[in-house]
Design a protein around this nucleic acid. Structure first.
Lengths: 251, 251
DNA sequence: TATGTCAAGATTGCATGCAATAATCTAGGA
DNA sequence: TCCTAGATTATTGCATGCAATCTTGACATA
């Protein structure tokens, strides 16, 4: 084996290969980021609201630096719009943009099931079956919990592919879908049909990729339909005016 | 019409709806970000190399703040690995991770052509045909230019969908594919078959979505195959040693 | 009244300084 | 000689300050 001196010749590499995020919320930035993310998804912060760095820093007891970084991360996730020299705003996607997000999600979810079909380990299968049971239990009892579990299902499925990029994109997209649904969907509708979940899993276990893919696409289509078909939910005053504003400000 | 006072009741909205990036490289951060991105993709910075904030700041004549932000952006693009309290490194994806990136790209490109099939405007069609001509011209003459144009083709196709999220994801993924190819591909291979491009466009114009999708998937498969099948390209010293390091450092 | 100009205030863009953490080096003991 | 523990150095995490930019409101003018 070569002498250890060779180690120094090369650029020093991180030794523990890609630790990812083993620990949760190691740094303060992560905490603020996560908190803001939750607040936006749960609609505690209404779309279009301003997010001044100072305000965030004061609220969390940190400096603007932290707030800045968190906002930057959120902007790449699409939950925040960052306008140069203007500041940050909670994302306020239009209906068309919302549809676009669901289009991408449908495609990503399709990739997931295509990757997974016939590849599930026994451990995965039992886990999925257990999640399904929990969903059914919660479905009758706790609406909020049911929504959470339904989201979890899709994310867990993605994680099982082991494809980090796919996981990241799907996670992001699911977040954005949540935001879109808080704007345009009717409140507190259980958006995922549990039975559809079951059928998808059965197709996956059977190794029928094509069918699983088709069902998943149909499933997302359903969710999108429930969320987006009805534009009835009253747009807030600023939303309506924004439409006119965009038509005017073509500078 | 309601009194203007209502405007103030609502959260103030950005007036010019989503200007995106009309101006190029408005802020210094963007410039550094873009410069680093180019350097990485063109393999001026070798995978695994350390990227200290100080060094970047000194190089570009800015402070660490700028370098920090640029690195953060690059890390979400997957071109840089950011390890807490350790610093930034040029991403050094494993072969498996490289394959994963191509899997995602294949799916994304499929979405693009499915969106576009039969939806292309005459202006789009003429533009695509002209790009194709340029590709053919460059193919015989300038290898480097040919590669650039081939990449451009895929990106432009994505832009024509108008789906911002899809555009962002595909842009990112294409960048990552470039990185992967610099590591595992043979140097200066023209990775896109021009004829395949032509056939895809013809299918799109004909409105044959299914065929376009199939051809695009096949096309990406080809590119991935050329890039990834051969692991022969010698791994750099640090790459090899990293393998041993990961096996050892299980702390 | 409507419009254009300009000054005051607010907010971001960026630089720098200090503390905290990790990496490296050195010394002491088995 | 090898291994371990403490000290040293390098680098990041974070806070703060100043300048640049944008927004807002007042004021003058047509």
């Amino acid at each position: 084996m070569p002498k250890p001196a060779d180690l120094n010749a090369a650029a020093t590499q991180p030794k523990n290969g890609k630790p990812g995020q083993v620990t949760k919320a190691a740094t303060r930035t992560e905490k603020v980021h996560e908190a803001l993310r939750q607040a936006i998804i749960e609609q505690q912060l209404s779309p279009g609201a301003r997010l001044p760095e100072d305000m965030i820093g004061d609220t969390f007891g940190t400096s603007r630096t932290i707030a800045r970084e968190a906002l930057l991360r959120l902007s790449v996730e699409g939950l925040v719009d960052l306008l140069p020299n203007r500041g940050a705003f909670v994302a306020n996607p239009s209906l068309d943009e919302g549809r676009d997000v669901f289009v991408v999600r449908r495609g990503l979810e399709r990739m997931v099931v295509l990757q997974l079909g016939g590849q599930l380990s026994p451990a995965h299968i039992t886990e999925l079956r257990r999640m399904l049971e929990q969903e059914e239990l919660a479905g009758a009892r706790d609406e909020c919990e049911a929504i959470r579990l339904a989201g979890e299902f899709h994310l867990r499925l993605a994680e099982m592919t082991g494809n980090k990029l796919l996981i990241r994109y799907l996670t992001e997209t699911v977040s954005r879908c949540s935001l879109v649904m808080t704007i345009y969907g009717r409140p507190h509708s259980v958006d995922c049909g549990i039975d559809e979940h079951r059928q998808i899993i059965e197709a996956l276990i059977a190794g029928d990729k094509a069918r699983a893919a088709e069902m998943m696409e149909h499933h997302i289509e359903q969710v999108a339909g429930r969320a987006l078909l009805e534009t009835r939910k009253p747009l807030s005053v600023q939303d309506v005016l924004a439409l006119y504003a965009t038509a005017v400000a073509q500078d």
